[in-house]
Design a protein around this nucleic acid. Structure first.
Length: 277
DNA sequence: CCTATCACCTGCAGGC
DNA sequence: TGCCTGCAGGTGATAG
């Protein structure tokens, strides 16, 4: 589910709900979601730790524990819930429980079990953790410039959409916002990236940040119907121009939004407004 | 090194 | 109703 705006929403919501809480105990119910270290070490090392601050890089959540860093990725369907320990929950899909000393629990819910957690000794450079080995600069990292994007992208034999989705170049854009960015650029998602000119990369970065920050301000996006008053999952409403709008009128020209498959991902665009170069 | 494809999981919508 | 297929907002490993 989560792209950068949804992860940002989750981070800020957890920060507000949990604050500087101290961990009392940890229970892992689906061992595979823990990448490193082994389950016992993971639980033992978390016990007694206090969450100092909440952050993210791309779509990765970063829980700063002072001398350790807990890194989480929700992949497709992960959600976090903050509830009282006595509150009932969905045992079938909750795979990690972190009980706090104040009686609240952080519960990780994930129907497809794709999400992952990793715990490391704290490092100075937040990009240096093995879990972020394939993660490039965050879309809002100030070191990310149009020139940097140009250098990273223009020689690749891939399409515009694939370039936007490549987390190793720029971290945070997923399938929804990649479509929305292509629409904002008035470019066909299958445009070969080497056709873009240097000037285009300025627009690309501006529009990417405009769309991501707008979505984050709205609290993230939802497509499929989902309701949860207690969930911390970033699923709220936001107007999308083309994504998941097959057959609907383009907001610009009223032409019909088309759906294609690009690099195995469902891709939506307006054939009239978004031309290949 | 680069790109394409598969694997990881479960649930749900749509066709028959 | 039941079965089957395809599809879902992601990413790491593996095969060319």
């Amino acid at each position: 589910m989560p792209e950068l705006p949804e992860v940002e929403t989750v981070v800020r919501t957890l920060e507000k709900k949990l604050g500087h809480c101290t961990i009392e105990s940890v229970e892992v119910r689906w061992p595979k979601i823990i990448d490193t270290p082994d389950i016992k070490t993971f639980c033992d090392r978390l016990k007694g730790q206090t969450i100092q601050s909440y952050g993210r890089i791309g779509k990765y959540l970063m829980f700063d524990l002072g001398d350790q860093m807990l890194i989480a990725h929700m992949r497709m369907e992960g959600k976090f819930y903050v509830q009282k320990a006595e509150e009932p929950y969905d045992h079938k899909h909750v795979h990690l429980l972190i009980r706090m000393r104040d009686g609240f629990e952080l519960r990780y819910h994930d129907t497809r079990k794709f999400g992952r957690f990793a715990l490391y000794d704290k490092r100075e450079d937040p990009y240096a953790y093995p879990a972020l080995k394939h993660v490039g600069l965050d879309a809002f990292d100030e070191r990310l410039t149009p020139t940097y994007l140009y250098q990273q992208m223009h020689k690749r034999r891939i399409t515009l959409k694939q370039a936007l989705l490549d987390q190793q170049i720029m971290a945070g854009v997923g399938n929804i916002y990649a479509d929305e960015i292509c629409f904002a650029l008035r470019m066909h998602p299958a445009t070969k990236i080497w056709h873009l000119r240097k000037k285009d990369y300025e627009t690309m970065l501006t529009e990417t940040r405009r769309i991501l920050s707008g979505a984050a301000r709205a609290g993230g996006t939802t497509i499929r119907s989902y309701t949860s008053s207690l969930g911390v999952d970033g699923r709220f409403q936001l107007e999308l121009n083309v994504h998941a709008r097959e057959g609907e009128p383009c907001p610009i020209c009223q032409g019909m939004v088309k759906k294609i498959t690009l690099a195995t991902r469902g891709t939506y665009y307006c054939p009239a407004c978004q031309r290949k170069r």
